[in-house]
Nucleic acid binder design. Structure first.
Length: 332
RNA sequence: GCCGAGGUAGCCAAGGUGGUCACGGCGCGUGUCUGAAAAACACGAGAUGCGGGUUCAACUCCUGCCCUCGGCA
């Protein structure tokens, strides 16, 4: 077996998608966007889907939850991972893992190279690493019943159920209600570990797959500048109207999909308590912080081959690296 | 020029009968992360306009200067 999977990671606004498209063209690839926000239908400008205007999605024969998975075709290259669910539907890392692997296998079947590109660290990890607890589903009833409880109450609840788990958590997570609830959820379901990919298929596939991870980065001041410009462009292109449309369609600001940047920021604006300039400002600040957290996440992955996009010829060097990897049978 | 208000971190901003060199928010920096992850959470750095006086002790009181805002001229 000689299966290959190319991964392009890095913070927002470094040009991941454009690099991925270039590489896909050169190496007969298909893109899979690993982005927790671009999965929503109708959320385009705010999430920064880099698509030509008026490009319509196409339906594939791959079925997920009874519906065909959509993809876009840009200059002959397919982009998957966009428009997977409606804004009020549930989506998460486990779902992404399922879909991503369906697409990856489909791409291989055609003799092509899957290029997983995105900034959502957990989603990339969900595809490339065996994550056991990822397959324990959320317990809605439990979540609803404890959502009002304080951090201390939740801590006690977890300590009673699984003291070891609590002790294993770090200080930050111990004070994070969302993580505590999830831990409680796991403690109550620790026998129900089931796998979405039957029979440990994912592990087998991973074992015979050669993965190359490329990371893009830029000095923070430059990155912040690019982020600022990108936000301005998206606003100019009508990010506000996109939100207005979503509201008109009945989607509300309390949805998870609407908690993303470029959406939640408009809430005070529509309520008349802030200006468009202020929205832009806040949006940019949050993007800065997001980029920082993405970097924090990816930094820990020793396998990532980093490229600074301010260095000359970085693209040529990336292409060179990919070519070498692509032509060899297996690289370890 | 006169009257009034005020000058506390990059920005907004609390404070007190003078007494561990000062609340908080934003921003900034660092980190956490296994079904919400563009979420959620943790940690950190940073300040009393300038000078003089009173006092054991002043950011807090007095005073001169500089600056800002509002009103009057």
């Amino acid at each position: 077996m000689n299966r290959k999977l190319l991964i392009i990671a890095g913070p927002t606004a470094t040009g991941k998608t454009s690099l991925a498209l270039t590489l896909a063209n050169k190496f007969n690839g298909e893109l899979i966007s690993a982005d927790s926000r671009q999965v929503y239908i109708g959320m385009d400008l705010g999430t920064g889907k880099d698509l030509p205007k008026n490009l319509k999605p196409q339906t594939s024969k791959l079925m997920w939850r009874g519906k065909p998975i959509r993809y876009y075709s840009v200059g002959g290259v397919r982009i998957w991972g966009y428009d997977l669910v409606k804004p009020d539907e549930v989506f998460n890392a486990a779902f992404f893992e399922e879909i991503a692997w369906m697409v990856i296998k489909n791409t291989w079947r055609q003799g092509k190279l899957p290029v997983l590109v995105g900034g959502t660290g957990l989603y990339l990890k969900a595809v490339t690493e065996p994550l056991i607890t990822l397959h324990i589903p959320p317990d809605k009833k439990l979540r609803r019943s404890v959502e009002q409880e304080s951090v201390t109450e939740l801590q006690h609840r977890l300590i009673n159920l699984d003291k070891e788990h609590f002790n294993r958590m770090n200080n930050s997570d111990k004070q994070n209600k969302r993580r505590l609830v999830r831990a409680i959820e796991l403690a109550r379901n620790n026998t129900k570990v089931n796998k979405t990919l039957a029979g440990g298929e994912k592990e087998t596939l991973l074992a015979e797959t050669s993965i190359l991870k490329i990371g893009l980065k830029a000095p923070k001041p430059l990155l912040d500048k690019r982020i600022g410009e990108r936000v301005d462009v998206r606003i100019k292109q009508g990010a506000k109207n996109e939100v207005r449309q979503l509201i008109k369609q009945g989607y509300t600001f309390d949805l998870i999909s609407m908690s993303g940047m470029g959406y939640r920021h408009w809430k005070p604006y529509f309520e008349g308590t802030t200006t468009r300039e202020e929205v832009a400002r806040r949006w940019k600040f949050d993007e800065h912080d997001y980029a920082r957290r993405q970097l924090t996440w990816f930094k820990k992955d020793q396998a990532v081959r980093w490229y600074d996009i301010t260095e000359t010829n970085w693209q040529k060097r990336v292409v060179g690296l990919v070519r070498e990897w692509y032509s060899k049978l297996i690289i370890r």
